[in-house]
């Protein structure tokens, strides 16, 4: 009797318990870092956050602690990220469609996906440096347009892969049914795939936007920085990440405080976009055939 009883102090059971413990501990560390980051940004950012911060552009002496806000950077970042996302959309939708309808899981599909993943892995500082060479070649100066182009390049692989992952799960039957009815592949792509792609496109837009708005190293080279709100594509523009970065480097504590506030604003935007994409894609998925 009792031959099946657990021998808790047997080596392998001790090891099992220990491993489970350190695994849970690691998970707590990883999740805890997120909590810690958010907590720090909120605690440091809120004191300097004010209505002026989000409604005014820097006034004279702003960088020595006088009045004004970072509306220039907020708007600049929104322009940059929206423009970049829009531009990347124009290219990523056809690529994702082509991958699905023509290449599928063929060898070429594999190469294209691999190259997208590789592009994804190129750091933004290299894109920035590339943007710099591009601007010299084209005689372009640091401007909203240059920033948008580089952000579009950065967002392109993320957005395409996100769409690709979603429509890859699209059931084959549906597509074959359409083909059997005599549609050409293009018509299939347009009618069936587009409808099914809606969740993919939404997720992609939000992912791309989130990545674009947070990117600092590339806009440093291409978009420049200015205290004014950009009025044309050819003018330089401020951006939130750079607003954070420059103000952190300031010797004035008031300005550093505002750097934290700018970081808080940026974090709120990015988290809202990230949570929004989860919520939206969960909702939209209900209306497509799985």
């Amino acid at each position: 009797m009792g031959f099946l009883k657990k021998k808790r102090w047997q080596r392998r059971h001790l090891v099992e318990t220990f491993m489970k413990f350190i695994m849970r501990f690691s998970l707590v560390i990883v999740a805890g870092s997120l909590g810690l980051i958010l907590w720090i940004v909120v605690v440091r950012g809120t004191p300097a956050l004010s209505l002026d911060m989000v409604t005014k552009i820097p006034e004279g002496g702003y960088y020595m602690g006088k009045g004004g806000g970072i509306l220039n950077a907020i708007l600049g970042s929104l322009y940059l990220a929206s423009g970049g996302t829009l531009l990347a959309m124009i290219f990523s939708v056809p690529i994702a469609m082509y991958l699905k309808t023509y290449l599928g899981d063929s060898k070429w599909g594999y190469y294209v996906r691999l190259s997208l993943d590789v592009l994804w892995g190129i750091p933004s500082i290299v894109y920035g440096a590339f943007g710099f060479t591009l601007m010299i070649a084209l005689g372009l100066r640091a401007s909203l347009l240059a920033g948008i182009i580089i952000l579009a390049l950065i967002e392109l692989p993320i957005m395409t892969r996100a769409m690709d992952e979603v429509i890859r799960r699209m059931p084959i039957d549906l597509e074959h049914a359409a083909l059997a009815l005599g549609s050409t592949k293009f018509e299939v792509a347009l009618r069936v795939v587009t409808r099914q792609m809606l969740p993919g496109i939404t997720t992609a837009i939000l992912l791309g936007f989130g990545r674009g708005i947070g990117d600092a190293a590339s806009v440093l080279f291409t978009a420049g920085y200015t205290d004014r709100i950009p009025t044309s594509l050819m003018r330089p523009t401020a951006s939130l990440p750079l607003a954070v970065f420059f103000q952190l480097g300031s010797p004035y504590p008031e300005v550093q405080q505002r750097g934290y506030a700018a970081a808080l604003i940026l974090t709120i935007i990015v988290l809202a976009v990230s949570l929004g994409s989860r919520w939206l894609s969960a909702r939209l998925n209900k209306y497509t055939i799985k």
């Binding site: 997120l34 980051i37 720090i40 440091r44 947070g214 600092a216 970081a263 974090t267 990015v270 988290l271």
Partner: peptide
């Protein structure tokens, strides 16, 4: 979602966290 959020946080915010904490 925790991992997704962690991945979504912009580098410059990581920088702020690094500087402050």
């Amino acid at each position: 979602p925790i991992l997704d959020l962690l991945a979504a946080i912009p580098p410059v915010v990581y920088g702020v966290w690094g500087l402050v904490a």
